[in-house]
């Protein structure tokens, strides 16, 4: 099975270029990076906050992409790991006065563990069954966070307030701007690590599982180990995103991490192009900005407008932003020839 494999083999636009390309070229990367570094200098604080969220959700979408695009497993439960990461950060910061930057690795490790454990039963499930299992996890998470005996730590329904950090060393940056650059640095680090992971021996092992599990195991790939590891890595990155999200929003509460978040992340992955890591940021932009645009077009029908826009995207580019990038690339190549 199926999903990711079809993405790669059926796309007509994909054929002219290396089929397994999951990244951008150097030139394009530098342009995107420059834009991400320079834009905040010219915009208002609220926009900077939105850009921070853009990066954070992009990380979460990237994490899902590693799971689905990398190993072919499918999750509707990413919101649960995001919530765990957010709560780990919030609890460490508020109850134990741990520095915010140090909470992130802890969030990552805790979520890696949670994902790895969840990956064990998930091993026996595939396709729809796995979707249902992860969906159940996402549904259960807000309820678990509200549980009475955890209330001392989690703050129950009320949640926890998180203090926003100041820029260190007396740098003349606003809190929002500092947090943005901090998030950007973390995101770049994770992106580069993910690209390297997928290009490595382990990445190839993962993709062989995605393309043909039986053949992969016949070639000596430890399918169970790699599948659970993929779950763990994906959950770990999601957890870091969750931790960053808690700091950015300055608040965690159970109802911030419902199934809606998991579905949004999924939509983000599809819009960005399954298995194409740079698409994560496009997908993230879609799930952050399109609901606002929809609201702007019609208040009463914002859901319908969102739905119609989503339909438009998947009709025009069923393979998401990746397809757009490939078309652009081919156009550029043609122009060069002429």
């Amino acid at each position: 099975m199926s999903a990711a494999e079809e993405v790669v083999t059926e796309a007509p636009a994909v054929e002219a270029v290396p089929k397994r390309a999951m990244t951008l070229g150097y030139g394009t990367s530098l342009v995107v990076l420059a834009a991400l570094i320079l834009t905040p200098l010219f915009v208002k604080n609220f926009v900077i906050f939105q850009m921070t969220m853009l990066l954070i959700y992009a990380l979460a979408v990237l994490a899902l992409n590693i799971l689905t695009g990398g190993s072919g497993q499918f999750s509707l439960g990413q919101s649960a790991f995001y919530a765990i990461g957010a709560y780990v950060t919030a609890i460490l910061m508020e109850h134990f006065n741990v520095n915010y930057a140090l909470t992130l690795p802890v969030a990552g490790v805790v979520c890696f563990g949670a994902g790895f454990l969840f990956g064990q039963p998930a091993l026996r499930l595939s396709g729809i069954y796995l979707a249902l299992a992860t969906f159940a996890l996402a549904l259960a998470m807000p309820q678990l966070l509200k549980l009475g005996f955890l209330e001392h730590w989690t703050g129950g329904v009320q949640g926890l307030v998180v203090t926003k950090p100041d820029a260190p060393f007396g740098l003349p940056l606003s809190q929002d701007m500092w947090l943005y650059y901090f998030t950007l640095a973390v995101s770049i680090g994770i992106y580069v690590a993910s690209v390297n992971l997928l290009r490595s021996r382990s990445g190839r092992a993962l993709m062989s599982i995605r393309d043909n599990e039986i053949a992969a195991s016949a070639m000596g790939v430890n399918v169970a180990l790699y599948k659970t590891l993929a779950f763990g890595v994906s959950a770990g990155i999601t957890g870091i995103a969750g931790g960053l999200g808690a700091i950015a929003v300055q608040f965690v509460a159970p109802d911030g991490y419902t199934i809606t978040l998991a579905i949004s992340l999924f939509v983000g992955m599809v819009v960005g192009g399954v298995g194409w890591l740079p698409g994560s940021i496009v997908g993230s932009a879609f799930i952050i900005f399109v609901p606002n645009i929809a609201e702007g077009i019609s208040k009463g029908l914002s859901g319908a407008v969102f739905g119609v826009l989503l339909f438009l995207v998947i009709y025009l580019v069923p393979h998401g932003a990746r397809q757009v990038a490939l078309i652009a690339q081919q156009l550029a190549a043609k122009l060069k020839k002429n």
């Binding site: 999903a3 079809e6 999924f266 599809v270 969102f306 739905g307 119609v308 989503l310 998947i314 069923p318």
Partner: peptide, 13 residues
Amino acid sequence: KAPVLTNVAGFIA
């Protein structure tokens, strides 16, 4: 003819 996950996004829409 679109990928499976695109169809799922269609259901969500």
